[in-house]
């Protein structure tokens, strides 16, 4: 795959196959941490950071450890283990060397351990038999798509707080309807032929 193809793959991961709106991965933080644009952006940054690094590490674990021993069927367990350990490690590392980033990401960093978007990025990269560079780029761009989705959604939600909807729609129901409308808007990208 050449450079142009990688760019195409990244574009597709961000918009066409957006993790939240097209694949419905990572809906939990999408609904849970999207009340304010600032925190949503923080969450998005944390996910981007972890997903890129985990894309690289899980690729190495898969190719160098699971494939030689014929253990591909254990990939899910192995990846969960790797991601959990990685998140812990990154948290400690950031706290020591980049405290500004650590404070900005705050509690969202440990939450990512259980974010299925991170796991599915690793699994998809293996499924599509990406090379190392592609796996890293895929993780990064899928996370960018996640960040885009959650930030846009948080912007809409923060505007909606001033609205006075009918009582039955107040709060969570309206949030879900908004998410559905946004997903429909994003579905127009599926017309892009790549």
């Amino acid at each position: 795959m050449n450079f142009g193809n990688i760019l195409l793959m990244m574009f597709s991961a961000i918009l066409v196959e957006n993790f939240i709106f097209a694949k419905f991965y990572g809906c939990c933080p999408f609904l849970g941490v999207s009340e304010k644009p600032d925190t949503a952006l923080g969450m998005g940054m944390a996910v981007t950071f972890v997903m890129t690094v985990s894309g690289a590490v899980t690729w190495v674990v898969y190719e160098c450890l699971l494939v030689p021993f014929g253990l591909e069927y254990l990939q899910t367990v192995a990846f969960i283990l790797v991601i959990a350990a990685l998140v812990q490690f990154i948290e400690m590392f950031l706290r020591k060397f980049i405290p500004a980033l650590y404070n900005a990401l705050g509690i969202y960093l440990p939450l990512i351990t259980t974010n299925c978007a991170v796991l599915s990025a690793a699994l998809l990269a293996v499924q599509k038999s990406y090379s190392f560079i592609e796996a890293v780029c895929f993780g990064f761009s899928a996370a960018l798509g996640f960040t885009l989705a959650i930030t846009v959604f948080a912007g809409v939600r923060s505007r909606m707080q001033n609205a006075d909807p009918p009582r039955a729609f107040k709060g969570f129901p309206l949030t879900l309807i908004t998410a559905g409308l946004l997903a429909m808007a994003f579905s127009c990208f599926s017309g892009v032929k790549l």
Binding site: L81, V82, F89, M92, F93, K96
Partner: peptide, 14 residues
């Protein structure tokens, strides 16, 4: 991973 995290928690102690 356990050893790595244990070492890291000592090395990166704040």
């Amino acid at each position: 991973f356990g050893v790595l995290l244990a070492v890291a928690s000592k090395v990166f102690a704040v």
